[in-house]
Amino acid sequence: MYERILVSIDGSTPSNRAIDEAVKLVALSQGKIRLVSVVPSLANAYAAGAYSGFVPLESQESFEKETDEILANAKADLQKRGVDAETKMITLEAGTDEIADAVLREAQEWNADVIVLGTHGRRGINRLLLGSVAETLLRITTVPVLLVKAADQ
């Protein structure tokens, strides 16, 4: 049974659905949830923006503030549902790991039984340009992963 459930969130609809699935799992196991959110380095965000056509205007500090708010809001939502959760923000340094690497490392260090992750379900050119944390995580993971797809629009 999954007792240590790590949920990687980014404030998107798919990550909110991942939280919902984690709540179902924790209800079955009476386990623990850890919410993590990874802040990419500003340099990495600019590099990704060059390929996607989106260049972020925020500073590293604003990325971290937004991530802190995402974690706080998710934790508050869980508390309203009677579920206690730990939170952790992970900040990547320029030129270091990808988000998937950081999520996996956190899952291993925390001894997670499962990683729950929302996915946008992008295909084709959008997936090629924007990448897929979920796909990368699936390729490298040593921990079971539950992917939760965004609802069809």
Rank of each mutant, 00 (worst) to 15 (best):
I125G: 03
V103H: 08
L147W: 00
A85F: 08
L57Y: 09
K24W: 02
T119F: 02
D113H: 12
L57P: 00
I115D: 02
D84L: 12
E64H: 08
G95N: 13
N126D: 14
P144Q: 07
A43R: 11
M89I: 14
S132C: 12
V39Q: 08
I70D: 00
L71V: 07
L42R: 09
E69P: 00
G11C: 14
S15D: 05
I9K: 05
S8F: 07
I9S: 00
D20Q: 14
K65A: 12
Y51C: 12
A102C: 08
V143L: 04
A150G: 03
G118K: 05
L128G: 00
V26I: 11
L78A: 01
A94K: 14
G31L: 06
R139Y: 06
V26E: 05
N73A: 13
R122E: 05
G11H: 08
Q153T: 04
H120S: 14
A48M: 13
E21Y: 11
R81M: 11
G118Q: 03
N44Y: 07
V23L: 06
T142Q: 13
V7A: 11
S52R: 04
R81V: 07
L28A: 14
E66I: 09
A50I: 09
S62Q: 15
N126I: 08
D68L: 10
E66S: 12
Y2T: 07
A85C: 05
G53T: 09
R139F: 06
D68Q: 14
V39L: 06
V114G: 07
D152I: 10
S62T: 14
V36C: 10
A76Q: 13
E69T: 13
S29R: 07
V133L: 06
L117D: 02
S59L: 05
G82I: 08
V38F: 11
K24D: 12
Y2K: 09
D20R: 12
A85E: 03
T96I: 04
E3G: 14
E69Q: 14
E69G: 13
G31A: 11
A72L: 09
R4G: 01
R81Y: 01
I19F: 05
L35F: 02
W110H: 04
L104G: 02
D152K: 13
A107G: 13
D101Y: 04
A22V: 02
R105Y: 05
T67R: 04
R4P: 00
A27M: 11
D84I: 04
V39P: 06
E106K: 12
G118W: 01
I70Q: 03
Q60D: 14
G131L: 03
V7C: 10
D97E: 15
S12P: 03
E3P: 00
F54C: 01
T141V: 10
L104W: 02
F63A: 06
A76I: 02
N126P: 01
G53V: 07
R122Q: 05
A112Q: 07
I90Y: 07
V38K: 08
D113V: 10
V103D: 05
I33Y: 00
E66T: 12
L130S: 03
L92G: 06
V36P: 00
A100F: 05
S52I: 09
M89S: 15
E98G: 13
L147K: 01
L117R: 03
R17Y: 02
V133Q: 01
